[in-house]
Write a protein that binds this DNA or RNA. Structure first.
Lengths: 344, 344
DNA sequence: TTGTAGGCGTTATCAC
DNA sequence: GTGATAACGCCTACAA
């Protein structure tokens, strides 16, 4: 099946003009007479002419599309970010090509190669949980492919980054639990190789220290696949529950970890917050109807997506090489709900 | 900034061959000597040559990309469908360009025009709640653009469609409520112009009738924007609650309507299921941790996405015009949880 | 077996 | 003010 579209040639023939005249007229060039312009434009509109973007891409060497690599879109945080990406890209007439790494290093590499060979003009990246080495991105970056990282970023590439204030968000979440009177606060988090993991871990530790508590390594559990494998989370939780001194609260570091943990606690019939309190990073739109409603560290996901895309398009469209790179840090919001409230 | 890639020309020059020889060698043509092929392939691999897909597209008149129009991806049902779309497209080396109508007729038209002018090879569509007229798609379809509808489909275009068995899903949900002893079962649903709305409504009515009950129009509330506007849902719910004879159960027809309704009931301090029971169509991965856990009609979203994409790619790649169109109907699953259980 | 030429749709350059 | 031509990278008759 084929989908035939009208081209500049058809217009030229119909109007007995040359293709170059038509082309210039379409773009409103000043070297074309008003009358010719009117004719061309009228004919174009009437026949619903749209320049073929593929031909334009070939000519201009740019595809007007940007690639996105995230771990998974079936997750409120990332789908909201993509919402933001979409909205800006749309405004600036870029296409967005979304790919998912599913937290796999292999797939991340495959996606980056696929996208760059697909000649996207730039890349928006949030690293996979498995990724420890970013050579694949360094190579592309050195070749001049613009890229912006968000959320899970790397220090090894000098470019714009957009993140939430993970340190502060984690600090506030932990402090909130402390203020409620919890003392043995566990932390279930993603892969230790992710920037977000380290930042959130720091915030968590600092809050404990500021309260005069020593962080206990036994209370810190890493999930190398960021919760994509439920079993991983289950095991982390089990280990916590089997400690001689059970934690009285848990702070989970990501969307999926939070919901999985809550779900597991429920299955185990462990009452939240009576037996164990819970606070989690999550952008779930349903956190208020969870049982119990979940105290959440909410990231400005939509805004992160928008900002990231703005920065990327700036890079793409910049005439001169950019050397002044920014790391934008956006504030999170702590939404206090039932899951973290001390019960008498 | 520019991202320079190696072309067939570079290879030709380096190996002192013509571009056509290189081109043929790359594709393993039998008219090229083994030795030349080896040389070319070796050089290509070494320099990481990848054919420029844009040039290929221009040449072949196909872009190897498909456009998707859905109301919103920040929603478990649609993000799971897109997951399925992505997985098949990836396998078959197609790009996926996702756009959101946000339930707006205007935006749906804009998206369809944007995508077709972007020369996608085909379209995957789930209609917006506002859409009552599909002329914009008919026009594209007549011009020969392959398209497949899923979920919210139209009878006015002869092409493949993939839907859940909405009738049966709704029937089973309603019957379950009846079996639990509920008698005044309300139905909050989307826009009356959507196929899913009508199908689910029919299933709901039939279940009532089969139980000897007359469907009561007062108990059926439409939300023309499919729950995108929370106020709409709030009003529907309020009207139900203010009836002289309040419903004792509600059956909600979509992901967002279900979560919004549950959230509102909670805010109003109406106990579920004690005062009002609830069953909803939803693919939320968190339905089991809702308060109460939500009895759900779950659609095989991933599979729907995969099937839809398979069918679309078949259409795109078919040599001869396809006239035998299928409507695939996939079964839903009723997950019974607490929100619908009769309490003594 | 390899090379030449033309074309996909658009645009930039230069000539008329 | 308008038109011819070449070029973007690739593919494919057709020619050598």
């Amino acid at each position: 099946m084929k989908f035939e579209a009208i081209t500049i040639k058809h217009i030229a023939k119909a109007l007995k003009l040359s293709v170059s005249t038509v082309s210039k007229a379409m773009r409103g060039s000043h070297e074309i007479s008003e009358e010719t312009k009117r004719n061309v434009l009228a004919y174009a509109r009437e026949h619903n002419y749209k320049p073929n973007p593929i031909a334009q891409s070939l000519k201009r060497g740019r595809s007007k599309s940007i690639g996105v690599i995230v771990c998974n879109i079936d997750n409120n945080f990332f789908s909201q970010v993509i919402n933001g990406i979409e909205s800006i890209a749309r405004q600036k007439d870029y296409n967005v090509i979304i790919t998912q790494s599913q937290e796999s290093y292999e797939r991340e590499i495959a996606n980056s190669e696929h996208l760059s060979s697909r000649s996207v003009d730039g890349l928006i990246i949030s690293l996979s949980a498995e990724t420890k080495n970013v050579d694949h991105f360094i190579k592309l970056h050195e070749k001049g492919l613009p890229m912006v990282f968000f959320d899970r970023v790397t220090d090894e590439i000098a470019t714009h980054k957009v993140i939430a204030n993970n340190y502060k968000g984690a600090y506030e979440a932990t402090r909130h639990l402390l203020q409620q009177g919890f003392r043995r606060i566990a932390h279930i988090t993603s892969s230790g190789s992710l920037s977000i993991t380290l930042e959130r871990l720091e915030g968590y530790k600092k809050a404990l220290e500021d309260a005069g508590l020593e962080p206990d390594p036994d209370l810190i559990k890493f999930c190398p696949h960021g919760g994509m494998i439920p079993e991983e989370t289950r095991q982390a939780l089990n280990e916590l529950l089997q400690l001689e001194q059970r934690p009285d609260a848990i702070f989970t570091a990501s969307d999926r970890l939070s919901t999985t943990t809550l779900s597991l606690l429920r299955k185990m019939q462990i009452a939240v917050p009576q037996q164990i309190a819970l606070v989690g990073f999550t952008n779930s739109i349903s956190a208020d109807i969870f049982h119990p409603s979940l105290t959440s560290v909410v990231q400005p996901a939509m805004e992160m997506g928008q900002l990231t895309t703005d920065l990327l398009i700036q890079l793409i469209e910049s005439k001169r090489p950019v050397t002044d790179f920014k790391k934008r840090v956006l504030d999170t919001e702590l939404k206090i709900r039932d899951s973290s409230l001390r019960t008498q």
